[in-house]
Computed example of a mutant assay.
Amino acid sequence: MHLAELLKYLLHQLQTGQPISVAPTDELELRAAAAWLGISPSELVRLGEEGLLPSHQVESRLVLYREDVQA
């Protein structure tokens, strides 16, 4: 995720009262991974469900490893 996208995302979260989470550097949450790849979060979910992109659930969140997203 580029710095400008990150700042825009953080500002949106703060303005709308949404939580901001900090994940370990080797993992990306759904929105961050989708932004990194330039696709919608729903498209990323589809890729994960079809086994085209490795992902796993952490509680109710879809999480991907940074190395899988960057590959």
Rank of each mutant, 00 (worst) to 15 (best):
H56A: 09
R31A: 10
Y9E: 10
L14I: 14
S55L: 07
L52F: 09
T25M: 13
V45P: 00
V22M: 04
A23Q: 07
T16L: 12
Y65F: 12
V58K: 15
L28M: 10
V58H: 09
A4E: 15
E27W: 06
E43L: 03
A23L: 12
A71W: 01
R31T: 05
W36I: 03
L14F: 08
P24V: 10
V69C: 05
E59Q: 12
V63M: 13
L53V: 15
L62P: 00
L62K: 08
P24A: 04
Q15M: 15
W36S: 12
V63W: 04
L53K: 08
D26C: 08
Y9V: 05
Q13K: 15
E27T: 05
G51C: 02
E67A: 06
I39T: 12
L44H: 00
S40P: 06
T25I: 12
Y9W: 07
Y65T: 13
E49N: 09
L6P: 05
L37D: 06
Y65G: 05
G17K: 09
E29K: 04
G48V: 01
Q70S: 06
L62N: 04
Q57E: 08
L64D: 00
Y65D: 05
L44T: 03
A32G: 02
R46L: 08
A4Y: 12
A71S: 04
V58A: 11
Q13L: 15
Y65K: 13
R46D: 02
I39F: 03
M1Q: 10
R31P: 02
R46G: 00
A34G: 01
G17A: 09
H2N: 12
S40F: 00
E67C: 09
L47E: 03
S40M: 02
V45D: 00
E5Q: 15
S21V: 11
A71N: 05
L11P: 03
L37S: 10
P54R: 10
A4M: 10
I39K: 03
L10K: 08
